[in-house]
Lab assay of single mutants.
Amino acid sequence: MDETGKELVLALYDYQEKSPREVTMKKGDILTLLNSTNKDSWKVEVKITVNGKTYERQGFVPAAYVKKL
Rank of each mutant, 00 (worst) to 15 (best):
D2I: 14
D2K: 14
D2G: 13
E3C: 15
E3W: 13
E3F: 14
T4I: 13
T4Q: 13
T4S: 13
T4E: 13
G5Q: 13
G5R: 14
G5D: 13
K6Y: 12
K6T: 11
K6D: 08
K6V: 13
E7T: 14
E7Y: 10
E7N: 12
E7A: 10
L8N: 05
L8K: 11
V9S: 00
V9F: 03
L10P: 01
L10D: 01
A11W: 03
A11K: 02
A11G: 01
A11H: 03
L12G: 00
L12A: 02
L12Y: 02
L12T: 04
Y13E: 09
Y13M: 12
D14C: 08
D14S: 06
D14P: 04
D14E: 04
D14H: 05
D14M: 04
Y15W: 06
Q16N: 14
Q16K: 12
Q16P: 04
E17Q: 13
K18D: 05
K18G: 08
K18A: 10
S19E: 09
S19D: 11
P20K: 09
P20A: 10
P20I: 10
P20M: 08
R21H: 15
R21Q: 14
R21I: 14
R21K: 12
E22M: 03
E22R: 03
E22F: 05
E22W: 06
E22D: 07
V23W: 05
V23L: 11
T24S: 15
T24C: 08
T24E: 01
T24D: 03
M25P: 02
M25S: 01
M25L: 11
K26H: 10
K26E: 04
K26P: 02
K27F: 04
K27R: 10
G28V: 03
G28I: 04
G28Y: 03
G28E: 02
D29M: 12
D29N: 05
I30K: 03
I30C: 07
I30H: 02
I30Y: 04
L31P: 01
L31H: 01
L31G: 03
L31A: 07
L31Y: 07
L31W: 02
T32A: 08
T32E: 07
T32I: 15
T32L: 14
T32Q: 08
T32R: 14
L33F: 01
L34P: 00
N35Q: 09
N35P: 03
S36I: 05
S36C: 14
S36F: 05
S36G: 10
T37Q: 11
T37V: 08
T37C: 14
N38K: 07
N38R: 09
N38A: 08
K39M: 09
D40F: 14
D40V: 11
D40C: 14
D40I: 12
D40L: 11
S41D: 07
W42P: 00
W42N: 00
W42Y: 05
W42L: 02
K43P: 01
K43W: 15
K43F: 15
K43I: 14
K43V: 13
K43M: 15
V44C: 05
V44I: 06
V44D: 00
V44N: 00
E45C: 15
E45L: 15
V46S: 05
V46D: 00
K47L: 11
I48Y: 14
I48S: 05
I48H: 09
T49L: 11
T49Y: 10
V50W: 08
V50D: 07
V50C: 12
N51R: 07
N51W: 06
N51K: 07
N51I: 04
G52N: 07
G52F: 03
K53A: 10
K53I: 15
K53N: 11
T54R: 06
T54N: 08
T54P: 07
T54A: 08
T54G: 05
Y55W: 09
Y55L: 09
Y55P: 00
E56H: 15
E56I: 15
R57N: 04
R57C: 09
R57Q: 06
R57L: 07
R57K: 12
R57Y: 07
Q58R: 10
Q58D: 04
Q58P: 02
G59N: 00
F60N: 05
F60P: 00
V61C: 06
V61K: 03
V61L: 02
V61F: 02
P62Y: 04
P62D: 04
P62G: 03
A63D: 03
A63E: 03
A63C: 08
A64Q: 11
A64N: 11
A64L: 10
A64K: 13
A64G: 09
A64D: 09
A64S: 13
Y65H: 06
Y65V: 07
V66Y: 01
V66Q: 01
V66E: 02
V66C: 11
V66I: 09
K67G: 07
K67H: 09
K67P: 02
K67E: 12
K68A: 07
K68W: 06
K68L: 14
L69V: 11
L69N: 01
L69K: 02
L69P: 02
L69Q: 04
L69W: 06
